[in-house]
Design a protein around this nucleic acid. Structure first.
Lengths: 161, 161
DNA sequence: CTAAACCTGACTTAGAAGGTCGGGAATTGT
DNA sequence: ACAATTCCCGACCTTCTAAGTCAGGTTTAG
């Protein structure tokens, strides 16, 4: 379990996706704009998220990304492990041959720590997270600064024409 | 709160110190041998630990390092924050101006996470840790592979002469 | 005085984070 | 059919930090 800004970017992007996906696929360009993450970097992250079956890409105009699972089934932990495939903190994790073929003094502690983290993050789903009041508030502000016009294709039940 | 091998090295070294300091100061050379950490690197780490008042250096022959506080008052968290002075995980931590002068979506989550970690590590003292059965076992093995003869100066109450 | 230890700071190296670039392949609207 | 839009892919670059090295100090017990 590793915690980097990379992980945070991934979680942020997935959250954005979870919030907006009911109006159709979300483009990486939108996420890039709204969340301030480089487009190319997002592409790298989403490649991994796709391989892990967390999102599905929709090609062509009007396309973008959608969640491949319902938001209440996607945990923050699963997102982080998806983009940071190098789950083991150090050479230690594997089979305990961290030092001279023996396990180092702190091996056990780091294991416990890792588990604490995982348990915490595994208990939070995208769904729960998206519904937090603080998050909602930020989303509203972002809506004003970076409006997301729905693609024409996805307006069919509305009073738009 | 940051978790690197650097932190682990520091905790390992402090643990070694806590275990052996009743027979006098412990040299960095000893720790380097026993724990497999580069001597110069240890010196860097201990410079920081000393500045934070966790250890005290004793110069000259027969010298080394001692704990500057009783082992039951030193927490793992204090060791980690001592060597990783850059406590903030990202630009985010400071005042929440992570993105466009606004706080990013995951700001709150990362804060909570950081706190979870800290609480966990702050609840573990060197003392507690050193007395764990697993740790004791490793120490015994290390004693056989890397015996630590006490310096003559510190043998005065024994049947050594 | 000298050797053992701490102390200091500058330097090097490896690897990862974060980002860029250029070109594809699929799909939709016209 | 065709062009625009989007995902998709891989190579590359830059910057930063962990981790380690090196070369010199300074203090102090014997």
């Amino acid at each position: 379990m590793k915690l980097s800004t990379k992980s945070r970017y991934a979680v942020t992007a997935m959250l954005d996706l979870a919030i907006h996906d009911r109006v159709g696929p979300v483009t990486l360009a939108d996420i890039s704009q709204t969340q301030g993450i480089s487009l190319s970097y997002l592409e790298q992250l989403f490649a991994k998220l796709r391989k892990q079956g967390l999102v599905a890409g929709v090609r062509g105009p009007g396309g973008g990304y959608r969640l491949a699972q319902p938001a209440h089934e996607i945990t923050v932990a699963s997102i982080i492990t998806a983009v940071d495939e190098n789950v083991k903190m150090t050479r230690c994790q594997g089979s305990g041959d961290c030092h001279d073929g023996q396990r180092c003094l702190t091996h056990q502690l780091w294991d416990e720590l890792s588990e604490q983290l995982f348990t915490f993050l595994d208990g939070i789903t995208l769904d729960q997270f998206a519904n937090r009041p603080e998050v909602q508030q930020i989303v509203r502000r972002q809506q004003q600064q970076h409006p997301r016009p729905a693609h024409p294709h996805f307006i069919f039940g509305r009073s738009a024409a």
